[in-house]
Each structure stands twice: as structure tokens, then as C-alpha cells.
Amino acid sequence: MKTSEFLKGLAVSVWTGTVHLFRHRMTSMYPETQNYPNTEMYAYDPKKGVAVSGWRGRHYLDMSKCTGCQLCFIACENIAEAIEMIPVPEAAHAQNKKSIYPGVDYGRCVFCGFCVDACPFYALYMTPVAEISEMNRNDLYYSPVELSVPPVPNPAPKVHVNFDKKRGSHDER
């Protein structure tokens, strides 16, 4: 390599790095701001056979629609073995004669969403909340009653991801 070439390459790369000092920073300050590129719920439309795009996080179970047909359990059977059908006698709904509902073990769930695709009764959704952490491994198990409560709204300020020509995708503050 010639000396002039060497010096030119060196100058170009050092200059590129220096210019980068004055760019917008890429990092988002988690957990004060949280990026969710898609804030919708992942749902499935059994009539069309196509799912509705959304973030695949924690499930939401509509107990008034669940018939206890176990299709979500069968869908999960060989994927993560995370869903178990749990009898909940106190939750009496006419359409669910046996009163069995799915409970999800998030220590096993891989968030693939094929259980939602299997549900023919619009009973199972996936919400954008994916941060699930517990001190005890067994607490990662969510019973049907816990799943039927809508997820707690995030304490962080509502942040939307903005897509920009100059800055890429970044959170709008």
C-alpha cells in the first residue's frame, strides 16, 4: 500500500468517526422509554384465516368467549408445552360447560402465537406487554384468571417509534 493511500484512508476513517460524534444517539433509555414498533394486539381472524398484525407478548384471555375446546393446548403441545387446561369452577360461563380455561407458563412460552391462530372463537389474543419477570420461577405461571385481566399499563411514558430518513427508527420524545 502506498503511503499516500494509507494516509488518505486513515484520514477518511478518522473523519467519519469524528462526524459521528455529532449524530443523534441510537440508544433508547430503557426503561424510561420503551420501544414498541407495533402497539396493537396480535389477534387472529378465523373467518378470513389470516392474523391481524400486532406485538406478540403476554396473552389476554376473554373468558366469556372461551369454550374450553383445547385447540390452543393442542397447538402448543409440541412447540413449548406451555399451555395447560385448568378447571376454574367459579368462572361460570354458559359456553364453557366443563369450565376449563388455558393457563400459560411463561417460563416455557416461546411467543410464537400459534395458539392464537388455533383459537376459532376470538378468545385468545397477545398483548404488547412482553416484560414478564418474577423472583420465583413458578410465579411465571399465569392462571386463566390472571390471563383474563388486561395487562397493567406501562409506567413508562407512552412512546411511539418514529421512522425517519435521517435518524432511522427512534422513539419520539
Binding site: N35, P37, N38, A51, W55, V110, G168, S169
Partner: peptide, 28 residues
């Protein structure tokens, strides 16, 4: 990560999309 944000806005997951299924794709 910017590319992941774009892909995630359609598929709903950051890394393992599980997006292709026999017959098409899962979501519009």
C-alpha cells in the same frame, strides 16, 4: 436494530418472526 424495528412492526417479534406459513404469510 432499525431493521429489526421495521420487521417487528409487521411480524410482532424482534428476532424469531415465525412469519412464513404454508400458503402465505401469517399477517398482512
Amino acid at each position: 436494530d432499525y431493521l429489526i424495528d421495521v420487521a417487528a412492526s409487521a411480524t410482532g417479534a424482534r428476532v424469531t418472526f415465525s412469519y412464513f406459513v404454508p400458503g402465505g404469510v401469517r399477517t398482512d
